[in-house]
Nucleic acid binder design. Structure first.
Lengths: 197, 197
DNA sequence: TATTGTTATACTCTATAACTATA
DNA sequence: TATAGTTATAGAGTATAACAATA
């Protein structure tokens, strides 16, 4: 239960407010042969993450992992993972929609959504209902148990949101969400040619 | 080249500024038997993600995926993935440090770091140097090629950072990094008992 | 011919146990 | 006994191709 991705820092004190000391950079590398690290050159104290702590992508990834870790811990009692929660929520808000629509709205590949739904169905939280008008498709709905669990989950989720809001200060949470949305829409890559060509 | 995780929205217009209409919620679910979605009840237009678009964890995950996607595209020419870039950067800033120290600082498991280093070494970007003082350990250094590639990579990375800064407005990028740091340190889970527990 | 759900499959990332060689 | 690097392996998460049933 611990996802990484870019690079994770678990134990390091993380010099967030410490001035990044970029002083001692060895313009030339030590001889790639053998090194006596007993001296003083490199074997000293903490590893310096330097610029990394100011890189949006890096900090973003770390924050996402931290939030998910907390989420998973909070939802352990409900036996729900983040993706499962999002699926329950979307089904709950859009009952009767096609299996493929639910999957697509969450960016889940259709093949991968099959096992997810199987699991939710096995636990009696959701159901596939064969459509009358198009017998290829499945209309997805929550069961009563599914709605009940979703309600409990939403309450737990609200707790996390409250903790986050507290951590970020007045208006901080909303501002963060807004800024993050700006990074998502419109896509960064498209229609954003680099400054000089 | 496309990572997901929670749930991803690729095509949906994403009602970021649209008021989440939470009106028509069917307190009771449709009969779990068969559904005629041809009527009007559920088979209508776009899927409603509703609360999800305001959940920090969800938006955070989506933003992280968006940034990484952009990163990977930008770094395609250099054949560097985010994790590889972070490793090169940390080695560059901390030449001669032990393999396990580099890995730990980035939260990479020691066993998983072996293959990463193998690859960087195979490409002539980094080298393992057997330490004289402790013949168990490897001191990791960048090669000249490694330093050269890192320099190019840092320039590319700076471009992404500039694009992000532009997207987020004056001071927005720095504020975002600061807020994200607050979510990471101290850990959300520890020492944060729920409001009423 | 196109779409829906499905199966099979593969690749990446992450995690743990256990080995080896040193200390 | 403990540590550094390694091997092997297992589990998620995600991606694509192809099939059967239906449109």
């Amino acid at each position: 239960m611990d996802e990484r991705g870019v690079a994770e820092d678990r134990s390091a004190p993380s010099p967030a407010n410490a001035t990044p000391r970029r002083g001692r950079r060895p313009a030339r590398a030590p001889q790639p042969d053998e090194i006596d690290e007993g001296g003083e050159g490199a074997g000293a104290g903490e590893i310096d993450l330097a610029e990394l702590t100011g890189v949006v992508g890096y900090v973003l990834r770390r924050a996402q992992l931290a939030i998910f870790e907390d989420f998973i811990a909070r939802f352990a009692a409900l036996d729900l993972k983040p993706a499962q929660y999002s699926v329950l929520l979307v089904i709950g808000r859009n009952p009767g929609r096609k299996q493929s629509e639910i999957a697509a709205s969450l960016g889940i590949q259709r093949p991968n959504f099959v096992a997810m739904l199987d699991e939710l169905e096995r636990r009696g939280l959701a159901e596939r209902v064969r459509s009358v008008t198009d017998r290829r498709s499945h209309a997805i709905v929550l069961t009563d148990d599914g709605r009940a669990l979703l309600a409990r989950a939403a309450a737990v989720q609200a707790e996390q949101e409250a903790i986050i809001a507290e951590r970020l200060g007045p208006g901080g949470r909303e501002a963060l969400v807004e800024q993050l949305r700006r990074l998502v829409t419109p896509p960064l890559s498209a229609g954003n040619p680099p400054p000089e060509g």
